[in-house]
Design a protein around this nucleic acid. Structure first.
Length: 656
RNA sequence: GCCGGAGUAGCUCAGCCGGUUAGAGCGAGCGUCUCAUAAGCGCUAGGUCGGCGGUUCGAGUCCGCCCUCCGGCACCA
């Protein structure tokens, strides 16, 4: 028996998980369950990332102790994961003092001992707004690019990780382990990034309490990225249980979003090299699941709560949709319309109906008793599907694995149409043939259910139960379970529709803006019998405290907004986003302002428009041109810009 | 701008090292069985395979240029 240790990224606990977060966990869970089915000693790790200043702030805003806040969030996360049938074996939090603290401290010490952590008196620009140091190259005209404030020059004791030292070792490692980074797109990105040279990284913060103290400098805490990555080793036992760690480490697979592959493919391996530890087998950077083609975001109000689907149908239809419809590694799209379509086609019409008709005929013609036989055409198709499935799943082509299972389901439906058991039943001379046909059909369904076990655990188990397989799903082993059974007798249970069809187009109506609100629509279908017994009823989480983000009228008045008329506009050479504007702000001389709207507007569309600008912004230089102000534009999440129209106000007019 | 990836039927996508009438699933239309959840099964879809040029006996499939989209980096004040 081989072992398989896989992880997902640990999540920030700023808000409850949305569909995108759930997608990562669901696919990882499918992989984990697949390995368990194969008989691998599987260890599936998840967790929360809590030592972030944002978390600390969010807790303060709500007047809570940060740890208490994290405790609450953990319950919310676990609730969602339970609702989606995520079968993690371990859940670690970075505030875990028993496991995570010693691991982080051990690793920091190990890196130090290896000469890869050094002290620097960080003399640098510190932006109070960001609560972080700003590299000089990120400053624009000496100002924080985000807060437009002048960062303070701070001299702080700071520890650095010698990442630069690992450029060559990393490149060598990538070369020797071509499948370390998947999919290939991500690999190419990382290769180019590392080839471009690596800089040392600050890995500590001074004078903070929210974090893990450095063993060799208790006045500093470990910076979040260094802290967070170590969770994988911490859960395995690093720093607190060497025997367990030796058994479990290294991880076979890190499942992460494509946005953080760099951390996992560059920094994390470098840290492990420094600490003298084996490197993980593979990092897989999955894509995003969009909603109606757009990135989900709170500001867009298009967050899909994964539990909205799970509450109605159980987690399985959603799990199936996400693994079958999205090419694993690429971006995908979720819409309720599509979800409903797939639900009807894949579950109600094909699999569910198939189970039903096989069970109904078995009951009617054979009182639910079927005798095994060798099988004919279907046995061959099942064998093909099984090997295609296995190959796909081993290569993390989850969508192809599911497709293979569905080929078998289709074949079974076709087989029934061809053999026409109902006709055979009319002729007593064909009794034996009828028995064989029914058995073959049931056997094909049984094998398909085995293949779908990782994707739809409870539904597949329910199908197996109806087909008379009394083995506990956890005890099934792929090699024997997915093989055609040529002997024995089985009792078939006819127990009604697993997935009732959704009849009305648009039957699923879900509030998109208030993810936790109960939908007022009549429930289109009862929850599948195979759904977990405990319906998920997430507690309403505390609304994010927005109040403390509010500013006073005085704050606002610091910003001088003025009406301006665009006199000239031209694209900035060699720039994709910048447009150079000459605007009349009611002053003696027109101003030059740069705006990042070149992707949305042609210069000629701009001339003559009356817009709103920030008039008292400090000048900044961009692409060698000085900009004296900023134009206001709506910037949708998906990109682009929409200038605010100030027609017909006169240039120079104050806006407030 | 640089570096990657992609542009194939209404939708989502397969098409390996170039080779007969370019495929699948979903949706739609038509037909049909009746065991089944008005499900299943069969047939139909006439798509300039982004555009132009080239290599070749022959190109979605290779080469060049162009257009569009996506991602990464560099300027989104």
């Amino acid at each position: 028996m081989s072992s398989f240790f896989l992880t997902t990224a640990i999540d920030y606990v700023n808000s409850r998980p949305h569909l995108g977060t759930a997608y990562e966990k669901i696919t990882a869970d499918v992989i984990a369950r697949y390995h368990r089915l194969k008989g691998d000693g599987t260890w599936f790790l998840m967790g929360n990332d809590e030592h972030s200043q944002n978390v600390f702030k969010r807790a303060q805003e709500q007047g809570k102790d940060p740890l208490a806040y994290c405790d609450e969030m953990e319950q919310i996360f676990r609730e969602v994961w339970r609702g989606l049938d995520i079968s993690f074996d371990d859940f670690i939090r970075t505030t875990d003092r028993r496991r995570h603290f010693p691991a982080v401290q051990r690793m920091a010490q190990a890196c130090l001992d290896n000469g890869d952590i050094y002290e620097g008196t960080y003399e640098g620009f510190y932006c109070v707004g960001c609560e972080e140091f700003k590299p000089e190259k990120d400053l624009v005209d000496g100002l924080c690019p985000i807060h437009k404030t002048k960062p303070e020059w701070i001299k702080e004791k700071n520890w650095f990780f010698r990442l630069s030292k690992y450029q060559q070792p990393l490149l060598k490692f990538y070369e020797e382990h071509p499948s370390f980074i998947e999919p290939e797109v991500r690999r190419n990105e990382i290769l180019r990034f590392v080839e471009g040279g690596l800089e040392d990284l600050s890995m500590s913060r001074a004078g903070q309490s929210w974090g893990i103290p450095l063993p060799f400098d208790p006045t500093s805490v470990v910076y979040v990225w260094f802290d967070a990555l170590i969770n994988y080793a911490a859960a395995a036992g690093y720093g607190w249980d060497d025997a367990q760690f030796a058994r479990r480490w290294p991880a076979n697979l890190h499942i992460v979003g494509k946005d953080i592959t760099r951390f996992h493919c560059v920094i994390w391996p470098a840290m492990l090299m420094s600490a003298g530890l084996p490197l993980p087998g593979q990092v897989f950077g999955h894509g995003w699941v969009f909603f109606k083609g757009e990135r989900m975001s709170k500001t867009m109000g298009n967050i899909v709560d994964p539990l909205d689907a799970a509450k109605r149908f159980g987690p399985d239809p959603l799990r199936l949709y996400l693994t079958k419809e999205v090419v694993y590694g690429a971006d995908g799209d979720f819409t309720w319309e599509r979800f409903e379509e797939k639900y009807n086609a894949d579950l109600a019409n094909n699999l569910g109906n198939l189970v039903n008709r096989v069970a109904a005929m078995s009951e009617r013609y054979r009182q639910g008793r079927l005798l095994a036989r060798g099988g004919e055409s279907l046995a061959t198709i099942a064998a093909d599907a099984t090997s295609a499935y296995r190959k796909a799943m081993d290569g993390l082509a989850l969508h192809e694995g599911v497709a293979a299972a569905y080929r078998l389901i289709s074949a079974a439906n076709e087989y029934i149409a061809e053999t026409q058991p109902w006709s055979l039943a009319k002729d007593p001379a064909k009794a034996e043939q009828l028995s064989g046909v029914l058995y073959d059909a049931s056997e094909a369904v049984r094998i398909a259910a085995v293949l779908l076990l990782p994707v739809m655990p409870s539904s597949a188990a329910e199908i197996l139960r109806r087909l008379g397989d009394t083995t506990a799903p956890g005890n099934l082993r792929f090699d024997t379970a997915a093989a055609w059974r040529a002997s024995g007798e089985r009792g078939i249970l006819n127990a009604g529709a697993l997935w009732p069809r959704l009849e009305d187009k648009g039957a699923i109506t879900v509030s998109e803006t208030t993810p936790t609100a109960a939908s007022g629509s009549p429930a289109p279908a009862p929850a599948a019998p195979a759904a977990p017994s405990a319906p998920v009823a997430p507690p309403a989480p505390d609304a994010p405290a927005i109040d403390s983000d509010k500013i006073t009228i005085d704050d606002f008045m610091k910003v001088q907004l003025k009406v301006a008329k665009i006199l000239e506009a031209s694209n900035v050479p060699k720039s994709k986003k910048l447009v150079q504007l000459k605007v009349d702000v009611g002053e003696a001389e027109p101003r030059t302002i740069l705006a990042g709207i070149a992707e949305s507007y042609q210069p000629e569309q701009l001339v003559g428009r009356t817009i709103v600008v920030v008039a008292n912004l400090k000048p900044a230089k961009l692409m060698g041109i000085e900009s004296n102000g900023m134009v206001l534009a709506a910037s949708p999440e998906g990109g682009g810009a929409l200038l605010l129209n100030a027609e017909p106000a006169v240039p120079g007019t104050r806006v407030r």
